[in-house]
Write a protein that binds this DNA or RNA. Structure first.
Length: 678
DNA sequence: GTTGCGTTTATTTTT
DNA sequence: TAAACGCAAC
């Protein structure tokens, strides 16, 4: 794509380089091309030093993709000098160099969900042994406060009888205190502490402002309050800020994203230019018409109307099914048909679901029909227990204050430091006000500990110190890690578990995959360190490494099965949207609790606009729920699509069921008659 | 320290 | 209904 191939709005966006710019980029409007061209224009034509350009995305995939496309335009050397990263890794980088002024050490750990859970669970137990509250719920509220930059002492008063609020008020301060003493940051801290760093040390902010004269933010509709404040500060001096986004695709409000950031951009940055990209290069006219009709039901939005220079294409199919099984069969039949009659590939088909639980029926039906499929999402590689346990060793080796991970590995694999001993250690650490690790180093001094336990502790201490030394000396990180895992006997521990042989093998392989990941990290990094690797684990490669990565999965010739949320940004020739029913889409929680049906409508809109040539909506008339059948109504969103865009298809359940069971024609006929007789 | 049972919970999850 | 987790008893 060169400047001439851009449409007028795209070109205007590329050429507008000075001052604030809001780029409202509709679905499929060639957004990434515009953003990369804009960077190329800054660096290539206007002669801006690449070091002065900062582009922030939400996902590593987006950052990588952008980096590659910019490299194609301005060459790899220039592209590498541009700072192109996610919010979280940008903050991690800033904090790695400047966090000491906030009283943390530079080798801080980054805590993920499971570390946070451990910590919060322990704190809650210490406050009230049988509180009966859900730790995730509390953690959720804490995270919500942090996303809004609310410090522990600034929490508003809570209502009478609000047990959850009361617990949050007690846990949140303790939680922050623990993180600090463990020299650990959670994801929210990365953002919150960077903002604090900028506020308390203006000279640091100024350094970054001076460096990043041109700032770009992708998916701006998904930014939360902390990210907004961060951007506001970074771009505050030069105001060469370009934000790109689509308020109609804001689907992460439940995670703290503030669509208000994009809606109020012109108020936040006076004099902002607003450019709309409304020409769509992805979908057929009918699909876009349906999408427009639905989304314009939302009140709070920037008016936009997607259009295409292409054909109207097929109508949107609306398939009414009997139940969940029937719905899955309907999809499978259509996939088959497309393959046999239209020479399409499996990978041209995507099934987008509201909830992960919905995938089950589809998986069964696809397997039954021998259709290859890939499931995207679900449990992440680095969230698996065996992987977390192994990684915990590395994390503790890097940061001796990290007590969550110390406790995780203390007796894993079993080495004779049981609950009793651990409790004694913790108690003496608390009473002496010394870090747990220091207490362990001279555990002999704690008289209540048995000689046998003391010996086990000493062995563990030696192991840790000797590996700390080996890692410090440098050399092959992967080899040292392999030796570490062998020495502590992780594989043996996994095989001891009462699981099937295959399960255990899988887990052992996963642990070995960590070593491979380190090797790959070393190969691509100029200055590999264990800290650096752990940071990529925490922030970057959340996706499974190797052959199971999301990208590899999408490249296979297989039907794609995933949640609507994770489909954002992708496109497929054939899109199926099952479960278009009240209670699913909009989801019943959104209707009853927060009334944010608008976000559900945007979710539906995201699904619809993933389709290039054919969109098929499906809904079932009844569905099993927690064991019993319930009647279902079709989604209100279907009724918001003009009739003339839809092709309704009613399935004769009985014939299709009979066909599905196979057998001779006459047997089939008998079965149909028997069913009709009922 | 392990095992199994019983209780709980079922929306989405870029980092 | 089913899976996952915590707890308690062995």
């Amino acid at each position: 794509m060169s400047l001439q191939t851009l449409n007028p709005q795209q070109r205007e966006a590329v050429l507008h380089t000075e001052g604030p710019l809001l780029l409202l980029a509709g679905a499929g409007s060639g957004k990434t091309g515009v953003v990369t061209h804009r960077i190329a224009h800054l660096v290539g034509t206007k002669g801006v030093a690449p070091e002065q350009v900062l582009a922030v995305t939400f996902t590593n995939k987006a950052a990588r993709e952008m980096q590659e496309r910019v490299a194609r335009l301005v060459g790899p050397r220039q592209a590498a000098a541009i700072t192109l990263s996610t919010f979280h890794s940008l903050c991690a980088r800033i904090l790695r160099s400047d966090i000491e002024s906030l009283g943390y050490k530079r080798n801080f750990s980054i805590y993920g969900a499971s570390d946070q859970q451990h910590l919060v669970r322990d704190l809650m137990a210490a406050i009230d042994a049988d509180h009966g509250l859900n730790a995730d719920h509390i953690l959720w509220k804490i995270s919500d406060a942090k996303n809004r930059l609310i410090a522990p002492d600034r929490l508003g008063p809570c209502m009478e009888g609000d047990v959850i609020g009361a617990m949050v008020r007690r846990v949140y301060p303790e939680y922050q205190k623990s993180l600090k003493s463990y020299n650990a940051l959670d994801f929210d801290d990365l953002l919150m502490l960077t903002v604090r760093l900028f506020d308390e040390h203006p000279q640091v902010l100024e350094r970054y402002q001076e460096r990043f004269r041109y700032v770009m933010v992708d998916e701006y509709q998904d930014t939360n309050a902390a990210q907004f404040e961060l951007v506001r500060r970074l771009a505050g001096k030069w105001c060469n800020l370009c934000v790109v986004g689509d308020d109609d695709q804001s689907i992460y409000g439940w995670r703290g994203a503030e669509p208000g950031n994009i809606l109020d951009f012109e108020r936040h940055f006076p004099g902002a230019r607003v450019i709309r990209l409304e020409q769509n290069y992805r979908s057929t006219g009918n699909i876009l018409a349906a999408a427009n009709a639905v989304i314009c039901q939302n009140q709070q939005r920037k008016e936009k109307r997607l259009w295409t220079a292409g054909d109207a294409g097929d109508k949107v199919s609306l398939v009414t099914c009997q139940d969940a099984d029937d719905e899955a069969r309907a999809v499978v039949e259509r996939v088959h048909q497309n393959l046999l009659q239209r020479q399409m590939h499996y990978r041209d088909h995507a099934i987008l679901l509201r909830t992960n639980a919905q995938t089950l029926v589809f998986e069964q039906e696809l397997r039954l029909s021998r259709i290859p499929y890939v499931l995207i999402g679900g449990q992440q590689f680095f969230d698996r227990k065996e992987v977390r346990d192994a990684i915990a060793y590395l994390r503790f080796l890097v940061n001796p204050f990290d007590e969550v991970n110390l406790l995780r590995i203390l007796n894993y694999p079993r080495r004779g430091i049981g609950r009793t001993t651990a409790d004694l250690l913790i108690r003496s650490s608390v009473s002496m006000q010394r870090p747990l690790w220091q207490v362990m180093r001279d555990a002999g001094a704690v008289e209540t500990i048995s000689p046998k336990a003391a010996e086990a502790i000493a062995g563990f201490v030696n192991l840790v110190e000797s590996y700390r030394k080996r890692y410090r000396t440098g050399g092959d990180l992967a080899a040292i890690t392999r030796s570490l895992f062998d020495t502590v006997g992780i594989a043996e521990e996994l095989r001891r578990a009462p699981e099937s042989r295959e399960q255990a093998d899988r887990r052992v392989e996963n642990v070995e995959e960590i070593v491979n990941a380190i090797a790959r990290y070393m190969a691509r990094e100029a200055n590999p360190t264990l800290t650096g690797f752990l940071e990529t684990v925490a922030l970057l490669d959340r996706d499974e490494p190797g052959d199971n990565s999301k990208e590899k999965k999408l490249a296979q010739d297989a039907v794609v099965l995933m949640s609507l949320h994770s489909s954002k940004g992708l496109e497929f020739p054939q899109v199926f949207l099952p479960g278009c029913e009240e209670g699913f889409l909009p989801h019943k929680k959104s209707v009853s609790e927060t009334y944010d049906v608008d976000e559900e409508r945007r979710l539906f809109y995201v699904g619809v606009t993933r389709a290039r040539t054919k969109l098929t909506l499906l809904h079932a008339q009844e569905r099993k729920k927690y064991g019993k059948m319930e009647p279902r109504d079709r989604s209100r969103f279907i009724d918001e699509i003009p009739q003339e865009l839809l092709r309704p298809e009613c399935r004769d359940i009985m014939v299709s069921e009979a066909c599905d069971e196979g057998g001779s024609l006459s047997a089939m006929f008998d079965r149909v008659m028997a069913l009709k007789g009922n």
